[in-house]
Write a protein that binds this DNA or RNA. Structure first.
Length: 809
DNA sequence: AGCACGCCGACT
DNA sequence: GTCGGCGTGCTC
């Protein structure tokens, strides 16, 4: 029996980013396992924290006295051996805390909430008892946290021993329960009860029979009522008479209650594959069967039937007794795709949406963890789904930037998927119509295995794309979001009773209030950014810190009333469209109209049922939607992303236009795409127009090579922030010096420069970008820098490191 | 993070 | 002379 446990504690700092050794008390030694959560004393005082057991041991190098583990939170490990290994690798490669990585892999509910409670333990004077404690004998620390006067008073009382601070670690993970019943008597005893009943007590008589029929089982009371037709009151009588007892029964919450999970007997059959699809499935299946952790890049034009390839490969993995993980970008985690997987695999499927409540997410997670679901579909964080015996991992739309988490731990789900593939000896399939340059370049070098689906399943041509030069339009017809060409075609579709999709590209775009007299733009008081108008709440909001203020009636600078709203939001476009095409029925989809749970699905369903003629939306409508009656797709402003100081701007624009084009003419009707732009000659737009990925790839690779960007170079971004600009700049200059000295001369260090949005949440940001091919010193040096900046000499400076950043701005 | 220790300025 | 500010270091 091991006597010691190595525990990673929930204190996310660089200094505590290591396991601590604890004694295992004899009464806990049978229950303790690697991967369970524990409560341990940590530091001075009575402070306790949650932690994870990461190893069991018999000896420790630590000289001091070891404290004992106070309690175990889990009966079974919540982190299995694979995820334990993964968490360590994740912390190392993303420069983040081990504890943060462990929590990232689990549903939120397993993160403990610690509360500090102040309790009166001796006589205090009336002022304290009433003004601070409100007549009670305890108080939550959080209530007085930001009141320094009270805090210092409490501090004194603590010194005098009149109050004490208690720490409570509270486990929020609660299974949902309903009332269940269980018989307290055996068959004969129940029979005896029956003998003493009145002859007309039919209900009770029936209850007794029912109790006899269930034996010692626990049954949900609702089910029992349903089965017997008896009322709750009868069960209460039974309880009073001592026939039965009520006991909680654990149930899963019903996240998709509205959607039908088909009966496993009525699952949809696989579709017939074409030769290319069959070849892809064969190769993937072979890798599954041979435990070959190969990475496939499945490059297929929109409508080429990638999803069917995924589904049939998953089916094969299941047949081999293995499990499968399918990741899709959040934005395309639509009911359409989810239902398709459910129709094929029924109750074997677990879905991890971002829109699940914490409780629902916890329930789905437990279904996976207990092996009740063998197929998981989900967005980025589902890559940590606790599936065992993985046979296949799929990443759909692998080029999507949402696979990278933009806060610590800044992991790239694609890399995590590859790690798990290797660990499980399972193939990984990266699917895309427009692969990221990184992935395609690896396929060229045979690091990945390229599979192509060059033909659309219905043999239909890709829709013709027409590019409209908006500079000409404005000269001829004045300012409008709609070209004559687009209006004519929209009208035409209305006549034919066909549908259209309009997309407003919101990237690099802001809608703001500006004064026409003095040019003053309304800005956030905390951040270096203009406020955005939100009509739904009638406020101006800051997208970075959440600051909110009323819409001004006059300019705060010159008090002119000529303050107006600029920029194009979906709302404004919708209004304009109503004026231009009064007869058209429009559904608008953006963050405002889809915020409420289930609205996303509802709006899409309405559009699918042709309750509207035009679907107007932001990027969220570009992916994965498949409406057979849509024959026109319009992009109102194709190039707003091109102007951004971002080396992936062209790639993103090309992807977006290619994706959105795929929405037109999916069934047997010929579709058409109109792209409005101010940069009609840009290669990203021209190549999208001709559906020429290869040409775009070659052109973009050339530019990346010239400028030493990925995939030719790796990149890391360092950011430092401080409430005072000079302190942030100074810290960064310091870091620059250390990098310059410690790294190879072939490594390029850019900066330090203020970030594009230099001030956010009252802090100033500076950044450095490092470009390198291979630098053996980099990894350790970055860790050293993190360590040092979090201790001395860098007071209040926050430093963070972003490996392989998605944006440089 | 949260707490203690220890070193300097401004008060009873 | 002490009280309390904050910079520094440690938590098994």
């Amino acid at each position: 029996m091991p006597e010691l446990a190595q525990v990673v504690v929930d204190v996310p700092t660089m200094q505590t980013n290591q396991p601590y050794t604890y004694q295992i008390p004899p009464k806990l030694e049978k229950q303790i396992q690697v991967g369970v959560r524990v409560i341990v004393p940590f530091g001075k005082g009575k402070r306790t924290v949650q932690g994870f057991v990461v190893a069991l041991d018999n000896a420790s190098q630590y000289e001091g006295e070891l404290k004992p583990i106070q309690a175990i939170m889990d009966l079974q490990p919540v982190i299995n051996p694979e995820l334990m290994n993964l968490s360590k690798w994740l912390a190392d490669t993303t420069y983040s805390f081990w504890i943060s990585c462990l929590y990232t892999m689990l549903p939120n509910l397993l993160k403990a909430k610690t509360t500090r409670i102040i309790r009166i333990i001796d006589e205090v004077d009336e002022h304290v008892a009433f003004d601070i404690f409100h007549g009670r004998d305890e108080l939550e620390m959080a209530a007085v946290q930001d009141k320094p006067a009270i805090l210092s008073e409490l501090f004194k009382l603590q010194k005098e021993g009149k109050i004490a601070i208690e720490y409570q670690v509270e486990d929020r993970a609660k299974a949902k329960t309903v009332t269940g019943i269980r018989s307290l008597l055996n068959f004969e005893q129940l029979e005896d009860e029956r003998a003493s009943l009145h002859a007309n007590a039919h209900a009770q008589n029936r209850l007794l029979s029912y109790l006899q029929s269930i034996g010692s089982q626990v049954v949900k009371q609702k089910d029992a009522e349903h089965k017997t037709g008896l009322k709750a009151a009868t069960f209460n009588q039974g309880q009073q008479k001592g026939w039965l007892e009520k006991t909680p029964v654990e149930v899963y919450r019903q996240p998709l209650a509205m959607q039908v999970t088909p009966d496993d007997a009525h699952l949809a059959a696989p579709l017939q594959l074409n030769a290319d699809q069959q070849n892809a499935v064969n190769q993937i299946n072979q890798a599954i069967d041979n435990h070959d952790p190969k990475v496939f890049l499945l490059q297929g034009v929109t409508g080429s039937g990638k999803t069917e390839v995924y589904l049939q490969s998953i089916a094969n993995a299941l047949q081999q007794g293995k499990t499968a993980l399918m990741l899709v970008p959040e934005i395309s985690l639509t009911p359409q795709i989810v239902n398709r997987v459910r129709r094929r695999f029924g109750s074997k499927v677990a879905v991890l949406h971002s829109s699940l409540s914490n409780g629902e997410r916890y329930d789905e997670w437990r279904r996976i963890e207990r092996g009740e679901a063998q197929v998981v579909v989900g967005a980025r964080s589902a890559v940590f789904a606790p599936l065992t015996n993985l046979g296949l991992i799929i990443l759909d739309e692998e080029h999507e930037s949402s696979y990278k988490q933009d806060e610590s731990p800044r992991y790239q789900a694609r890399e995590v998927a590859k790690w798990r593939g290797k660990y499980n000896q399972a193939p990984v399939v990266l699917g895309s119509a427009t692969p990221s340059l990184e992935s395609r370049a690896r396929a060229v070098k045979n690091v990945y295995h390229l599979l192509r689906l060059p033909h659309r399943v219905n043999k239909q041509e890709l829709p013709p794309i027409e590019v409209v030069d908006m500079r000409d339009e404005i000269k001829k017809y004045g300012e409008s979001n709609f070209s004559q060409k687009l209006l004519t075609d929209l009208n035409d579709r209305l006549q034919k009773n066909e549908q259209s999709i309009l997309m407003l590209n919101r990237r690099g775009f802001s809608s703001f209030m500006m004064c026409r007299d003095c040019g003053n733009v309304l800005k956030c008081p905390n951040c270096d950014i203009s406020l955005t108008l939100h009509m739904d709440t009638r406020t101006m909001k800051c997208h970075y810190c959440g600051h909110e203020e009323p819409i001004p009636r006059e300019c705060p600078n010159c008090h002119s009333h000529q303050i107006r709203y600029y920029g194009t939001g979906t709302e404004k476009v919708e209004q304009e469209l109503h004026q231009l095409l009064p007869q058209a029925r429009i559904i608008r989809m953006d963050v405002d109209t889809t915020r409420r749970k289930g609205m996303h699905a509802k709006l899409l369903r309405q559009f699918g049922q042709h309750q509207a003629d035009i679907l107007l939306g932001t990027q969220m409508i570009a992916k994965g939607l498949d409406f057979p009656n849509v024959t026109l797709v319009g992009v109102l402003n194709a190039d707003t992303g091109l102007g951004l100081p971002d080396f992936r701007a062209s790639e993103r624009t090309f992807d977006l236009l290619s994706q959105v084009s795929g929405r037109a003419g999916r069934a047997n009707k010929q579709g058409k795409v109109i792209i409005q732009t101010y940069n009609p000659d840009h290669y990203a737009i021209q190549d999208a127009k001709t559906h020429d990925y290869e040409k775009f790839f070659n052109q973009e690779m050339m530019l990346r090579r010239q400028a030493s960007y990925p995939p030719y170079y790796y990149t890391v971004r360092l950011m430092a922030s401080h409430p005072e600009e000079a302190k942030a700049a100074r810290a960064m200059a310091d870091i620059y010096g250390r990098l310059k000295q410690g790294l190879l001369s072939s490594t390029v260090i850019l900066g330090p420069t203020p970030r594009a949005i230099a001030r956010m949440k009252r802090r100033y940001y500076y950044q450095i970008v490092i470009k390198y091919k291979k630098d053996p010193y980099l990894h350790q040096l970055l860790f050293d820098i993190l360590q040092d900046t979090q201790s001395r000499g860098f007071k209040d400076v926050q430093v963070s490191i972003d490996p392989d950043p998605q944006y440089f701005m």
